[in-house]
Amino acid sequence: MKEHDKFKRQVRSIYTVLLVSCFMVFLIGILGIAYMASPSSFVFKVDSPNTELVTVTTDEDNWDKIENGIHLRTGLKDAEGLMAVVNNCTNCHSAQLVMQNRMNEERWIETIRWMQETQNLWDLGDNENIIVNYLVTNYPLLNKGRRENLTDIEWYTLKE
């Protein structure tokens, strides 16, 4: 009888996992259909350096619109080389990933080579210099370390 109860618990666990998985697939499907019906209703917030908050929209009318020096769809800064970055970098990953990885020229080139060798990134040709210059100029390396120092903290001593 003990083995039978153990078997029933295992079956119940498997059933629960399957039920939750089916529900998640259903929910993702519904969200996908809703997005396809009205992509402009999906607006994302992206935290961008040197700005309060950037709204990134998928509205087709604003696909490449620039407002207050920010490319609305990606949140990237408007500067020379922006569209080269948008066209080559955001095909594979989000602009937020590009913005948060602040590197010098040498590290960007190493990263591009790594993506070409391991991630099937195509040869960027003349665009490589344009992209690297845009990134180094607009998202330079910050020598802040892992995080800024804590300030205005009231420290206390733990009792032993």
Rank of each mutant, 00 (worst) to 15 (best):
I131M: 02
L82S: 12
V25H: 06
L135G: 06
Q116W: 01
L72M: 12
N62L: 08
E105W: 02
G145Y: 08
N120P: 00
T137G: 02
L53P: 00
Y139P: 06
G32P: 09
N87W: 12
L27R: 12
E3I: 07
N149F: 10
T51M: 00
L158M: 15
E154L: 15
L76H: 07
K2V: 13
V43P: 06
E160I: 11
L141T: 12
T57S: 11
L76F: 09
I112P: 00
E154W: 10
T111Y: 01
L124E: 05
N91F: 12
Q100M: 14
M99F: 04
V43C: 03
L72K: 04
V132G: 05
R113N: 01
L135A: 03
I70K: 02
T118L: 00
N143M: 09
T151A: 15
K6H: 11
K65C: 02
I14V: 14
S94D: 13
R73F: 07
F42M: 05
G75L: 09
E67N: 07
T57D: 04
K144V: 14
I70L: 04
T16Y: 12
I112Q: 01
V25C: 10
F42K: 07
Q100A: 12
L97Q: 13
F26S: 12
V86T: 06
I14A: 10
W63P: 00
T90E: 11
P140D: 06
C22W: 11
L158A: 14
A34R: 15
M83K: 09
Y15A: 13
E148F: 13
E67Y: 08
N129P: 03
T51D: 03
G145A: 09
G69F: 02
Q119P: 01
Y139F: 13
Q119E: 05
T111R: 02
R147A: 15
I28K: 10
L18W: 06
W114H: 02
R9V: 07
V11F: 09
N120Y: 04
L158E: 14
R147H: 15
L27Y: 15
V54P: 01
T111I: 00
L142P: 01
G32Y: 13
F23I: 14
G145Q: 10
G81C: 13
T151D: 14
Y35H: 11
G29Y: 08
F7W: 13
V132T: 08
N129T: 11
E128H: 07
S13C: 12
R12C: 07
G29R: 04
K8W: 11
D5H: 10
W155Q: 07
L53M: 05
Y35R: 11
L124H: 05
T118G: 00
E110I: 00
S13A: 14
K2E: 13
M24C: 09
P49L: 03
Q96E: 13
V136R: 03
E3A: 09
I153Q: 10
V132E: 05
S94P: 05
I66W: 05
A95R: 03
L18R: 05
E128A: 04
Q116C: 01
N104R: 04
N101P: 04
G145T: 06
I14Y: 05
F26L: 14
I66M: 02
